[in-house]
Every structure is written in C-alpha cells, then in structure tokens.
C-alpha cells in the first residue's frame, strides 16, 4: 500500500512538472464538443438530443490521447524495468499508473463535463447524471487503456495500433454511459445502466492490472 502511494505520488509529480499532460486532454475535450453545435445544428432541442453521445465519444477520445504519456516515457527512460526489478508487483505498478492517469485526465473530464452539458442544452438533472456516469465510466476506460498501452509499448506507430486495439473494448462503456445520460434527459429510470457501469468498473479494475502487467513483461523483453 505504501509502495502504491509512493508510485502514485511520483507519477503525479512527474506529470505536474509539465502541465501539458493534463491540460491537453481537457482542452481537446472542450474543443471537440464545441465543434458539434457548429457542425450539426445550434438548435437547442437537437443539441440536447446528441449531447450524451457527444460527451461520451469526446471523453473517450481524450482519455485515449492521455494514455501514451503515462506508459511510454517510463518505458523509454528505463524506469519501467527498474520498477519491475525493485520488488514491486506488476499489479501495483499498473494500478498506480491507472490511478494517476485517472486523477490527471479522468477527473478533470468529470468536472468539465457539466459545463459542456449546459452548452449542449442538457438539463440540470441529466447533467448531474452525466457526471455520475463519467465518474464510474472513465476509470474503466483507464483500466482498459492500460492493457492496450502495455501491449504496444516500444512499438513504432504504437499509437495507431493502440487506438485500433482499445477503441472496440471501449464500446460497452460508451453504450451504457451514453444510455445513462440519455435516459436521464428523457426522464426515464437510469439505475440499470449505472449499475452496469459500476459492474464494468469492478470487473476491469480487478482483471485489467493482471493482463496489463503480463503484457508489460512481454513488451520489456
């Protein structure tokens, strides 16, 4: 536990040295979502209709953008092999990276989403539900992304491969995340979708670190 603590705090202090890591994904999220009123239609009812999907697709893509920074640099400068050789389990390494990744990227998205929701004419209730859905969904995305990132470490053009590997795995989260917000904006019950998101988080949180640490050990060879 102490080890995970010091791993997470190192991740965070490295990231906070260069602010771009956590500003870029959020800026990307804001930029992409504000494109939709311009491209589709500025009409409020139309916007409210597409808002859940737009928010979820944009947050998924900006999380994908952030993954690289958390794994590739450690691989390149030899930190990753030093971590694996220092007696810390692969599970703890992945877990701490996911936690740091979520704090730096996922959490800001959760906080910014309501602002974008207002922009896209989501009502207050649906906005709060969107925050809840993102709060449960984004950590799962980070966990799934960790598997893809660990598999593509050290590959040339790994970024494209990462996208192709990981985006299909994001689909269930996307479906239930957007469905949660949509149900809330139409005044229908959404507890079922929220439960599925929570279940996905528990599943991915438990299994993904095993898969990712195994992949990491293969990549480091």
């Amino acid at each position: 536990m102490k080890k995970i603590g010091s791993l997470v705090s190192r991740e965070l202090s490295v990231v906070f040295r260069s602010q771009s890591e956590f500003i870029y994904p959020v800026a990307f999220f804001v930029m992409v979502t504000t494109m939709f009123p311009l491209a589709v239609s500025p009409e409020p009812t139309q916007l409210a209709f597409i808002a859940p999907g737009v928010i979820w697709v944009a947050s998924l893509l900006s999380l994908l953008l952030s993954l690289h920074a958390f794994y590739q640099a450690d691989f390149d400068d030899g930190s990753l092999e030093q971590l694996l050789l220092s007696g810390v389990s692969g599970y703890s390494i992945v877990l701490s990276k996911v936690v740091a990744n979520w704090i730096v990227t996922g959490l800001p998205l959760v906080l910014v989403a309501p602002v974008i929701g207002i922009l896209l004419n989501l009502d207050t209730h649906a906005n709060l539900v969107a925050m809840l859905a993102l709060l449960l969904g984004t950590p799962s995305l980070c966990f799934i992304g960790a598997i893809g990132m660990s598999l593509t470490l050290g590959l040339r053009n790994g970024g494209v491969l990462l996208t192709l590997l990981v985006l299909p795995l994001f689909i269930p989260i996307l479906i239930f995340g957007a469905a949660t917000v949509e149900a809330a904006s139409m005044g229908r019950p959404y507890i079922g979708q929220v439960a599925v998101l929570a279940a996905a988080l528990i599943l991915s949180g438990f299994f993904a670190p095993f898969a990712a640490s195994a992949a990491m050990k293969i990549s480091i060879d």
């Binding site: 080890k3 010091s6 202090s13 040295r17 260069s18 400068d77 030899g78 092999e81 007696g87």
Partner: peptide, 25 residues
C-alpha cells in the same frame, strides 16, 4: 540492476529520483 537506460525521470531532481527508488525497498 543498472543498465544502459538509467531509469531516472528527467523531470525530477536527482534527490527525488533517489528517494523514490529507496522508498520502494
């Protein structure tokens, strides 16, 4: 094990790097 890649984080100070690794063990 110290290899060709030194495993130091360029964005941290010398002291922070050493403290971190010591802390793990």
């Amino acid at each position: 094990y110290l290899g060709h890649s030194l495993g130091l984080k360029p964005k941290l100070t010398a002291e922070q790097n050493l403290n971190f690794y010591r802390n793990l063990r």
